[in-house]
């Protein structure tokens, strides 16, 4: 993008200034504060003089090597994120492919888009009340249904079963967020240069081919955005596991956020350990993001070249476009 306004450059700084100031105060400072707490002995309800630990990494070491529950929380977070994200992105991509395919021209797609996003509006509190009631044991709608269909002789304690509990939390997350992901992906597809699609049609590509060869590669940046925001969201998963199952049964839905919350605000008030755990989660987020960036960037260059080729082709095929 070429802009000649050298004299306008200062506006770039001015326009971005509010962001920077607020970020420094409300995000940067608390993050550093939290990081420092992780190296101290700050715990207990009553504020006491806080000291740096003799071994500054003691809290981190305890958490990683000496705390089964924390490791379990990391594993749970990963598991629940996978059961939520893979179906979520697949369904969102499928719906995107359908809704942006002019040949299909799905009727009522506006209504569908509006409705599919709706689960995102519902509060975690509502979900907790609704799902606890639905899966209630020994009597509840789902149990009655299973009984009616002859699938079970005795009532099933769904929420006592670890797999079911994790699956349900994963499902709720999936159900709440696929609409949101879909809307962003559709936006991404709408931003793709139409020339590319026209070229694909000219070449006689099928809808499936067009989707995998043209749409997906052009969606890279948006996909990266979806991946990163979803990953951060996954690492922060809190409301549903906490309100719906309080991290149970037997810690099966204890995510890292629930663990950190329990450390900091319940029982023993170990701010230091909670802070250290937060920093570990942060580091994981950074590493995973870097990995994502690396994979996306690496292929980007190649894709760009490919795209240039296609553009040239398109330009040749449709000279009236210019």
């Amino acid at each position: 993008m070429r802009r000649k306004g050298v004299s306008y450059a200062k506006y770039g700084y001015i326009f971005c200034l509010p962001f920077v100031i607020i970020f420094l105060i409300f995000s940067m400072y608390p993050t550093l504060y939290t990081a420092v707490i992780g190296f101290t002995d700050m715990k207990g309800v009553i504020p006491k003089p806080v000291h740096l630990l003799d071994n500054p990494f003691q809290n981190f070491r305890d958490l990683i090597f000496n705390n089964e529950t924390f490791r379990k929380a990391l594993l749970n977070t990963l598991l629940i994120w996978i059961i939520n994200f893979i179906p979520q992105i697949l369904l969102a991509l499928l719906l995107t492919a359908w809704f942006t395919n002019n040949r299909l021209n799905i009727r009522g797609q506006g209504l569908f888009k509006v409705l599919l996003y709706m689960p995102n509006i519902i509060t975690a509190g509502t979900i907790a009340v609704l799902f606890s009631a639905l899966f209630a044991y020994p009597m509840g709608p789902v149990n009655s249904f299973f009984h009616l269909m002859g699938w079970s002789d005795a009532p099933i304690f769904f929420l006592q079963d670890k797999t079911t509990a994790r699956g349900l939390v994963g499902f709720i997350q999936f159900w709440m967020w696929y609409g949101n992901t879909m809307i962003i992906l559709i936006a991404g597809v709408m931003g793709i240069n139409p020339v590319l699609f026209e070229a694909a049609i000219m070449d006689g590509a099928t809808a499936v081919q067009t989707f995998f060869r043209v749409t997906l590669p052009s969606l890279k940046t948006i996909l990266l955005y979806v991946l990163i925001t979803s990953m951060i969201g996954g690492l922060q998963m809190f409301d549903i596991p906490q309100l719906f199952l309080q991290g149970g049964p037997d810690n099966a839905t204890l995510t890292t956020s629930v663990f950190i919350y329990n450390q900091a605000f319940r029982g023993a008030y170990m701010y230091n350990r909670a802070a250290a755990a937060s920093m570990i989660v942060f580091l994981i987020a950074v590493v995973l993001s870097l990995v994502l960036f690396y994979f996306m960037r690496d292929r980007d260059a190649a894709e760009l070249k490919k795209m240039e080729k296609m553009m040239k082709k398109a330009a040749k095929a449709a000279p009236r476009e210019v």
Binding site: S132, A136, Y137, P138, M139, G140, F157
Partner: peptide, 18 residues
């Protein structure tokens, strides 16, 4: 086999449990 404060527990107070 109910848990306290769940609907099934309340149901036993009116005798409508299993």
């Amino acid at each position: 086999d109910t848990q306290d404060w769940t609907e099934a527990w309340f149901a036993d107070m009116s005798g409508s449990g299993s």
